[in-house]
Lab assay of single mutants.
Amino acid sequence: TVKFKYKGEEKQVDISKIKKVWRVGKMISFTYDEGGGKTGRGAVSEKDAPKELLQ
């Protein structure tokens, strides 16, 4: 599970739902399947990112 803040809201998403991951400076950005055909997005700092996300 990845915990992150998006627009001031605390969120979390299961690693299995993450589609795409990329690095922006010291942040790790990602998109994930929100269900219902929607794609969500989020970002975590490199130090807070789970190891599975960095692979």
Results as ranks from 00 to 15, higher is better:
26 K>I: 13
51 K>N: 10
2 V>K: 01
25 G>Y: 04
26 K>A: 13
6 Y>D: 10
29 S>E: 15
18 I>C: 02
53 L>V: 04
37 G>T: 04
24 V>E: 13
24 V>T: 14
34 E>N: 08
33 D>E: 09
31 T>Q: 05
1 T>Q: 11
47 K>E: 13
6 Y>G: 03
26 K>Q: 13
42 G>L: 02
44 V>D: 00
33 D>R: 03
30 F>W: 01
50 P>V: 05
33 D>A: 06
13 V>R: 01
6 Y>C: 11
35 G>K: 06
26 K>G: 14
31 T>D: 06
33 D>Q: 05
26 K>F: 11
38 K>G: 07
8 G>V: 02
50 P>H: 05
14 D>K: 08
35 G>Q: 05
47 K>S: 09
53 L>N: 01
41 R>V: 13
50 P>A: 04
1 T>S: 13
20 K>C: 15
8 G>Q: 04
1 T>E: 06
50 P>D: 03
39 T>S: 07
21 V>Q: 03
19 K>F: 11
32 Y>M: 02
22 W>V: 08
37 G>M: 06
2 V>D: 01
55 Q>R: 13
51 K>P: 15
12 Q>L: 11
5 K>H: 10
20 K>L: 11
18 I>R: 00
13 V>K: 01
43 A>K: 12
14 D>N: 09
23 R>P: 04
32 Y>R: 00
29 S>C: 15
39 T>V: 14
17 K>D: 10
3 K>D: 05
45 S>V: 09
53 L>Y: 01
54 L>S: 06
10 E>P: 09
38 K>A: 08
31 T>A: 05
31 T>L: 14
10 E>A: 10
30 F>Q: 00
48 D>G: 06
10 E>D: 12
40 G>K: 09
30 F>A: 00
32 Y>A: 00
10 E>Y: 13
46 E>G: 08
21 V>R: 03
5 K>M: 14
33 D>K: 03
10 E>R: 06
26 K>P: 10
12 Q>T: 15
44 V>F: 03
31 T>G: 02
13 V>L: 06
17 K>G: 04
51 K>C: 12
27 M>F: 13
50 P>C: 04
36 G>V: 07
28 I>E: 00
18 I>F: 02
53 L>I: 05
46 E>M: 14
46 E>C: 12
6 Y>S: 10
54 L>Q: 07
38 K>T: 10
32 Y>E: 00
10 E>C: 11
37 G>K: 04
15 I>M: 12
54 L>T: 09
20 K>D: 09
25 G>H: 05
17 K>L: 12
21 V>K: 03
20 K>N: 10
40 G>S: 08
52 E>H: 09
2 V>A: 02
41 R>G: 03
10 E>Q: 10
1 T>L: 15
17 K>M: 14
45 S>M: 13
6 Y>R: 06
41 R>S: 07
17 K>C: 12
21 V>F: 07
38 K>F: 07
32 Y>H: 02
14 D>A: 13
42 G>Y: 05
42 G>R: 01
42 G>W: 03
50 P>G: 04
49 A>Y: 03
34 E>K: 09
24 V>W: 14
47 K>I: 11
47 K>A: 13
3 K>C: 09
48 D>A: 10
48 D>W: 11
16 S>P: 04
43 A>F: 15
53 L>W: 09
43 A>T: 15
12 Q>R: 09
22 W>N: 04
52 E>L: 10
32 Y>T: 01
54 L>K: 08
30 F>L: 01
18 I>G: 00
13 V>P: 00
2 V>Y: 02
9 E>V: 14
12 Q>I: 15
8 G>D: 06
32 Y>N: 00
48 D>H: 13
13 V>E: 01
44 V>R: 02
19 K>S: 07
27 M>C: 14
40 G>F: 06
23 R>M: 08
50 P>E: 02
16 S>F: 07
43 A>P: 00
17 K>R: 12
54 L>D: 02
47 K>H: 09
19 K>H: 08
42 G>N: 02
55 Q>W: 11
11 K>L: 08
43 A>Y: 15
27 M>A: 05
53 L>H: 01
26 K>E: 14
43 A>Q: 15
21 V>A: 11
35 G>R: 03
53 L>F: 06
2 V>S: 01
46 E>P: 07
39 T>Y: 10
9 E>N: 07
36 G>R: 06
6 Y>Q: 09
24 V>H: 15
24 V>I: 12
35 G>W: 05
12 Q>Y: 12
5 K>L: 14
27 M>V: 11
20 K>W: 08
10 E>T: 10
31 T>F: 10
47 K>Q: 13
15 I>K: 02
39 T>R: 08
5 K>S: 09
8 G>P: 00
34 E>S: 08
54 L>H: 05
35 G>H: 05
28 I>D: 00
41 R>A: 06
25 G>P: 02
54 L>I: 15
9 E>T: 13
22 W>I: 07
21 V>S: 07
44 V>Y: 02
35 G>P: 09
42 G>I: 02
24 V>C: 15
4 F>C: 03
18 I>P: 00
5 K>W: 15
52 E>F: 13
8 G>H: 04
2 V>E: 00
15 I>Y: 05
34 E>I: 11
50 P>W: 04
25 G>M: 03
29 S>L: 15
43 A>C: 13
28 I>P: 00
40 G>A: 11
5 K>A: 07
20 K>F: 11
22 W>S: 05
51 K>M: 14
41 R>K: 08
44 V>N: 01
12 Q>C: 14
20 K>R: 11
16 S>K: 12
31 T>W: 10
5 K>E: 08
5 K>R: 12
49 A>R: 01
49 A>K: 01
2 V>H: 01
45 S>E: 15
15 I>R: 03
52 E>M: 09
5 K>G: 05
19 K>C: 12
20 K>Q: 12
55 Q>P: 06
5 K>F: 15
7 K>N: 13
50 P>K: 02
18 I>H: 00
25 G>C: 06
28 I>T: 01
51 K>W: 14
23 R>K: 12
36 G>A: 10
5 K>V: 13
34 E>H: 05
54 L>A: 06
7 K>S: 05
1 T>D: 06
2 V>L: 12
7 K>I: 03
52 E>A: 12
9 E>F: 08
42 G>A: 07
10 E>S: 09
23 R>C: 05
8 G>W: 03
9 E>W: 06
50 P>I: 06
46 E>F: 14
23 R>D: 02
15 I>D: 01
36 G>K: 08
14 D>W: 06
47 K>P: 05
5 K>Q: 12
8 G>T: 04
42 G>T: 02
44 V>E: 00
23 R>Q: 09
24 V>L: 10
45 S>D: 14
46 E>H: 09
34 E>R: 08
28 I>N: 00
19 K>M: 12
37 G>S: 05
44 V>P: 00
29 S>Y: 15
15 I>P: 02
39 T>H: 07
51 K>D: 11
11 K>A: 04
18 I>V: 08
41 R>L: 14
55 Q>A: 13
35 G>V: 08
34 E>D: 12
14 D>M: 12
49 A>H: 01
13 V>G: 00
6 Y>N: 06
14 D>Q: 11
33 D>W: 07
20 K>S: 11
46 E>L: 15
45 S>W: 14
48 D>N: 13
11 K>H: 09
48 D>T: 10
4 F>Y: 05
6 Y>L: 06
10 E>M: 13
25 G>V: 02
7 K>C: 14
27 M>I: 12
34 E>V: 09
12 Q>N: 07
12 Q>G: 04
4 F>G: 02
27 M>G: 03
8 G>M: 04
2 V>F: 10
2 V>W: 03
17 K>V: 07
38 K>L: 10
14 D>R: 07
27 M>D: 05
31 T>H: 04
4 F>V: 04
45 S>I: 08
17 K>S: 11
14 D>I: 06
7 K>G: 09
22 W>D: 03
50 P>M: 03
53 L>S: 01
5 K>T: 14
